[in-house]
Amino acid sequence: MRQLPAFLLVVAIAYVLALALSEAPAFGRVDAPARNEVMRFYLDEECEQSGIPNTVTAIIFDYRGYDTMGEATVLFTAVGAAAAVLAGHSGTLVARPMAASDDVILRMVSRMVIPFVQIFGIYVIVYGHVSPGGGFAGGTILGGSMALYLFVFGPKRTVKKLPLAWGEIADGAAAFWYVLVGLGGILLGANFLANAAAGVPLGVRGQLFSGGTIWLIGLGVGVKVAATIINLLVHLAGET
């Protein structure tokens, strides 16, 4: 019944987009219109001045840091909305209730692996501005380690280790940390989220403590993402 209209709609959109794309700049052109002075500024500026080798991290946390604050807020909103929906749900009707695994190998291996995963996550967060990575990637790895703990040892023990209230507080506080770093820019006499413009020392290119506020923001985002992941999973596992 809804097959035909949906199919026609999709074909119509496909036709319009095919029309548009057949005249769009070809794929992979080095002189494509999007490769303009804006892009070159990011890359050249990075090479010579701000001293953050990972340009993507620099864009995310510095040039377009305001968008990233919005992005962290979207994560916060999703956790809030999901927590409000799942508050007071039992998790019983969804398949069988989630319990700890009784597989010895699984438990032993997880016990050994989790600390290393966490250290790697922290490494990716902390070195996000000098190498591939960043707060989002590292936070996901850190959250992944806690997710592994949840799946192997069950939601009850996870909540005992990391009470839900702590997770929520970490979530809100890490998001507010971003705002605080931004307000720091105003206090230093520049604009919101200002980095070098506010006189924050940028440090030596390629070293751990470099890039000014990028490092601070990355740390907050890492905690935020990790807290988001574990909060969502604990809620979905029905431990409220």
């Binding site: 305001y66 989220l193 200002a194």
Partner: peptide, 12 residues
């Protein structure tokens, strides 16, 4: 308002 003091085509 230039967030982060980056002028328009680069900043927000």
């Amino acid at each position: 308002y230039l967030v982060g003091d980056w002028p328009p085509p680069w900043g927000v």
